[in-house]
Design a protein around this nucleic acid. Structure first.
Lengths: 200, 200
DNA sequence: CATAAAACATACTAGCCGGTATTTTTTTAT
DNA sequence: ATAAAAAAATACCGGCTAGTATGTTTTATG
């Protein structure tokens, strides 16, 4: 195989396996050994491609997790149609699309935020970038709704955006405590009601 | 010193130091050695009072963290006065009362939930109990508001309660990414707006 | 086809981890 | 005063940790 291609494939393999293990067991408790066992390669290969576990952590966040949030929660916001309906469909639809596995392990981004964001600026910056992109998309959509006359003018888009993100990330964590979806249903009722009250 | 008193004092010391270290550095990465170094006692003392680190974890949750959430977020909800004002004062007031240290490290309960709730039922149960108590207090207050005619009848108290809790816990995590309070101010604006729209 | 560089493997280190076994010190009950 | 029991200290274990040093194999290039 071509050298460059081989290198990229190996890095992608490490990235995929480490994302999965971080998601299932947390960042701190997932060792480089465990990751490389999953890839069926060795520690030598890891430290050839990454200079430290921290570097890997940042890369998992800024590629894998970023893409995941973008595809699931940001991209849909730029579609056409009524702003409030788009919001409800995106937030509720995402929750409904989750498997039991996803529900049990919460939001990968939120897990990272709560586990390691307060102890290393590099993680902080990478995670912040995702939140800011998400917030910008929400603000954009809310402003569009206001311009189109479908959302009341008395609200501050930025505040609503933060409140929407907070509640979503919050409930993804709280769901971990339960073995059923009642909490998600309650959340979705709460969200629905919230959005209804923004209707012009 | 009396034996019983001494034992209780030692357990309280272990509990205090471990809460602090769990809060600052996470549960998994705080070792029994580190905790006992903080208490200036030894490992022998620890394993005399606790049969495992897991047992300590559960006790920290069901005593220390439970009390903290109760005092800060639940007890105030049972005070007299307008329901919506009580809600806003409790949620916003709590955020405003936090030190930089508290803001940087997020909510101890939420940290536990996101770090270890998905891997051990004992933690899950202890944490769930706190959330349920909080939820019950919120539902009670919202129902009182409805009975008194200060909150619209078209909302489902349980759904609102979950949405309020989710957003609060969510923002405590997201705040970790920032070094200023703008995100908290945005959250408080969002909350205020939300509550205004529940007004009868 | 030789040489260099990249990709990966093997073997190792010092230190930390939760937990245990054993001993010493302190308190209690008689 | 003394024996028993509780509290705490000491010393240890096997296994895991991030990271390093040094090999071997594969690919690229002249």
């Amino acid at each position: 195989m071509e050298q460059r291609q081989k290198s990229e494939l190996t890095k992608a393999l490490i990235l995929n396996e480490s994302f999965k293990l971080f998601y299932e067991n947390g960042f701190k408790t997932t060792s480089v050994d465990k990751i490389m066992k999953a890839t069926k390669l060795t520690k030598g290969a890891f430290y050839h491609h990454y200079k430290s576990k921290k570097e890997l952590g940042v890369e998992v966040i800024s590629t894998h997790i970023q893409k995941r949030v973008y595809e699931g929660m940001i991209k849909p916001l730029y579609e056409e149609g009524n702003a409030l309906e788009l919001l409800e469909n995106t937030f509720s639809g995402r929750l409904k699309s989750f498997s039991i596995y996803d529900k049990a392990h919460g939001c990968p981004m939120n897990n990272f935020i709560n586990e390691i964001a307060d102890e290393e600026q590099a993680y902080q910056i990478a995670l912040k970038r995702i939140i800011e992109e998400w917030k910008a998309a929400l603000v954009h959509l809310l402003e569009r709704g206001q311009q189109e006359g479908s959302i009341i003018m008395t609200i501050a888009p930025k505040a609503i955006a933060i409140y929407l993100i907070s509640a979503f990330e919050g409930v993804r964590g709280i769901r971990k405590l339960y073995n059923d979806d009642q909490i998600l249903n309650d959340y979705m009722s709460g969200l629905s009601l919230y959005l209804t009250q923004l209707k012009a």
